[in-house]
Simulated scan of single mutants.
Amino acid sequence: MYAGKLVEIGTVHDIFNHPQHPYTKGLLASLIKKDTNKDERLYNIEGTPPTPEEKEGGCPFVNRCDFAMKICNTQFPPEYRIQSQKVACWLHAPEREKGDVHG
């Protein structure tokens, strides 16, 4: 969940081993692991979450996403099924492969 919107749904195993949404991937990359070196800098998702006024319209993660496309600014994506998971991200739109979703 990001800014009050469901962005990815799946089992714990799927989410931790096969994250599909850029926000989920960023969260997992920022975790301390047992083999993390104490001097190693943890991953940081740049930017700040949107305020309630800024959330309207597109994807609330758009300003922090490394993969944002033009459509992300204006339309929240529908849920796409990736095997047993559901993800709300234009990166997984079948139309994207046909060039109908513009980056």
Rank of each mutant, 00 (worst) to 15 (best):
M1G: 08
M1R: 12
A3N: 09
K5F: 09
L6W: 06
V7T: 13
V7D: 07
E8L: 02
I9T: 13
I9C: 07
T11N: 11
V12T: 04
H13P: 04
H13G: 03
D14I: 05
I15W: 09
I15C: 07
I15M: 03
I15D: 00
F16L: 05
N17Q: 14
H18G: 01
H18M: 07
Q20T: 05
H21Q: 06
P22L: 09
Y23V: 10
Y23A: 01
Y23N: 06
Y23C: 05
T24D: 11
G26Y: 13
G26S: 12
G26L: 03
G26K: 02
L27P: 08
L28N: 07
S30F: 15
L31Q: 14
L31D: 14
L31S: 12
I32V: 15
K33D: 13
D35V: 12
T36P: 11
T36M: 11
T36Y: 01
T36L: 03
D39T: 10
D39H: 15
E40P: 00
R41L: 04
L42A: 04
Y43R: 08
I45M: 12
I45F: 06
I45Y: 10
E46F: 02
E46D: 12
E46P: 02
G47D: 11
T48N: 08
P50M: 10
P50Y: 02
T51A: 04
E53F: 01
E53D: 14
E54M: 04
K55L: 10
K55P: 03
E56D: 14
G57S: 02
G57V: 08
G58P: 01
G58W: 03
C59T: 01
P60V: 01
P60Y: 12
P60S: 06
V62K: 06
R64T: 00
C65P: 01
C65M: 10
D66L: 10
F67S: 01
M69W: 03
M69F: 07
M69V: 08
K70G: 12
K70N: 07
N73C: 00
T74A: 02
T74P: 00
F76E: 05
F76K: 00
F76M: 07
P78A: 11
E79T: 04
I82F: 06
Q83K: 15
Q83R: 15
K86A: 05
K86R: 08
V87C: 07
A88T: 05
A88E: 13
C89K: 05
C89N: 06
L91Y: 08
H92E: 13
H92P: 05
P94Q: 15
E95T: 05
R96A: 12
E97H: 11
E97F: 06
K98V: 12
K98P: 03
K98A: 06
D100F: 14
D100L: 14
D100E: 15
V101D: 08
V101K: 12
V101P: 04
H102Q: 11
H102Y: 14
H102S: 15
H102N: 10
G103H: 13
